[in-house]
Design a binder for these strands. Structure first.
Length: 283
DNA sequence: ATCCTATCCTGTAGGC
DNA sequence: TGCCTACAGGATAGGA
């Protein structure tokens, strides 16, 4: 669910509204997230002020005074939710709570608990194993076609699985991978090694375009994703193929198909995205 | 090295 | 209405 645009939306909202606030209390639920941290570690945030935010791929950083960073990943169902005062709701699955000195609250809710919340020394952030594995962030570093072609050389995995590999491009998830491939006319099941450089150029360009357009609309809410204000993202109405099986292709009118690649739902137009590849020079 | 599968967990949609 | 199953945007460990 939450891919780069959704995480970036949350980051921008934190940046605009939560910067400068000082933590009065920091507490964790007793349920374990993907990687458990101790309540004592989390409580290190108390007394510190939020100075800046960052992001790499789908990982969010909140930098605090005193050289400490909150590292977070939304997993499948994670949300960071802000409220100006103590919330009156009785939200289930809240696993981390920051109460600020001004009375506002920031909570991490995650029913499926695939998400990540960790407190680390800012100076050692890049050494965290999850981050050390990541490929370049496509917003910070525009993907380079020749580089992609080189890294994909000889690879037999489906190009769609290649795009989902966070070690190659950090931040593309299941929704946007289908969207990128449709825009570029590349069939998702083609082997990564068979994609020609002009096609990689198109993929590089459309990757940035799709992600930036989705950021402009605060991301895609397929089911659980919400912004910092608990609002859905608006990009869903712009999707060309994702979750549109049987509906007409917005380009050629023929029905969108669903298949499974690497255990993940994949959507494409068989007409606009031929299995053998076409439209970018010969074979 | 690369690829594929199973797995973590809960909520929800759809079939009966 | 209720029960049951299948499935969901992610990432990783481990086996082939």
């Amino acid at each position: 669910m939450p891919e780069l645009p959704e995480v970036e939306t949350v980051r921008r909202m934190l940046d605009a509204h939560v910067l400068g606030r000082t933590v009065a209390r920091a507490r964790l639920s007793d349920k374990k997230l993907r990687t458990a941290i101790s309540p004592a570690t989390f409580r290190k945030l108390a007394g510190r002020t939020i100075e800046s935010t960052g992001r790499h791929g789908k990982y969010l950083f909140v930098h605090f005074s005193g050289g400490v960073t909150l590292l977070s990943h939304l997993g499948m169902s994670g949300r960071w939710l802000f409220s100006d005062a103590a919330p009156a709701d009785d939200l289930k699955h809240v696993h981390a709570t920051l109460v600020f000195a001004d009375g506002s609250w920031l909570r991490f809710q995650d029913p499926r608990r695939f998400g990540l919340v960790r407190v680390v020394a800012t100076g050692r952030l890049a050494k965290e194993p999850e981050l050390a594995r990541l490929g370049p962030d496509p917003i910070a570093t525009p993907p380079d076609a020749a580089d992609l072609r080189e890294r994909a050389r000889g690879r037999t995995v489906a190009v769609k699985a290649f795009l989902l590999d966070q070690g190659e491009i950090a931040g593309v998830g299941n929704i946007y991978a289908s969207e990128i491939l449709h825009r570029t006319g590349v069939h998702p099941a083609r082997k990564a090694g068979s994609i020609r450089e002009p096609e990689w150029s198109a993929i590089a360009i459309e990757t940035r375009r799709v992600l930036e357009e989705a950021i402009d609309r605060m991301g895609t809410t397929f089911s659980s994703y919400r912004t910092l204000w608990n609002e859905p993202g608006q990009y869903g109405e712009r999707l060309l193929v994702y979750d549109r099986a049987g509906q007409p292709c917005r380009r050629c009118g023929r029905p969108i198909r669903r298949s499974v690649i690497g255990q993940r739902s994949t959507f494409f137009c068989p007409s606009c995205q031929p299995a053998r590849g076409a439209g970018y020079g010969k074979k």
